[in-house]
């Protein structure tokens, strides 16, 4: 099902909208010129994921050294702070922590480097949870979310 969320011109960078579809709640985010949609349900313990803060990747080369990426590519659940990649729904543990064994991360061939989780994750390892994400398009100046869920690694740009 395709849901019209808002007029694109009313949806400023940094904004988010939460839409209710059937019994599902989906958060639609605009980061720069990109739109993302993610299920408003944290796979950890069911918290309202889309009420959380967005954050950039953080890097450090030693005590007191901080670098952050430009874009807010992550969404943190307000309940326990689990962070998810807005584009893929992939959760990430702290830096260097091994992923839970039962979960496998695959990198599809031909994928653009910016989508490669090994490069995007800034030293952090994929966690056990993946939040549902949905394609978002801008059609005739309206932001439209498609409730057909997509797997990780897919994103529609404006």
């Amino acid at each position: 099902m395709r849901i019209v969320v808002a007029r694109a011109e009313d949806f400023a960078p940094g904004d988010r909208r939460i839409v209710e579809v059937d019994r599902r709640s989906i958060g639609v985010f605009r980061v720069g010129d990109r739109f993302y949609a993610i299920n408003n349900h944290c796979p950890h313990q069911g918290g309202p994921l889309c009420l959380g803060r967005t954050a950039p990747w953080a890097l450090s080369s030693g005590p007191g050294e901080f670098q952050v990426s430009e874009e807010h590519a992550l969404l943190a659940c307000p309940w326990h702070g689990w962070e998810y990649d807005l584009a893929t729904g992939q959760s990430f543990l702290g830096p260097g922590e091994a992923p839970v064994r039962s979960y496998q991360v695959s990198v599809e061939p031909g994928e653009a480097l910016t989508d490669d989780p090994d490069l995007r994750m800034a030293g952090r390892a994929p966690g056990p949870y993946v939040a549902e994400t949905f394609p978002v398009r801008v059609e005739d100046e309206y932001v439209v979310v498609d409730t057909q869920p997509v797997g990780r690694d897919r994103r529609t740009e404006r």
Binding site: A58, P63, E65, F66, P95, E97
Partner: peptide, 10 residues
Amino acid sequence: WREVPWVKAK
């Protein structure tokens, strides 16, 4: 972890 990003392991 974000406050102490230099901590690279558990």
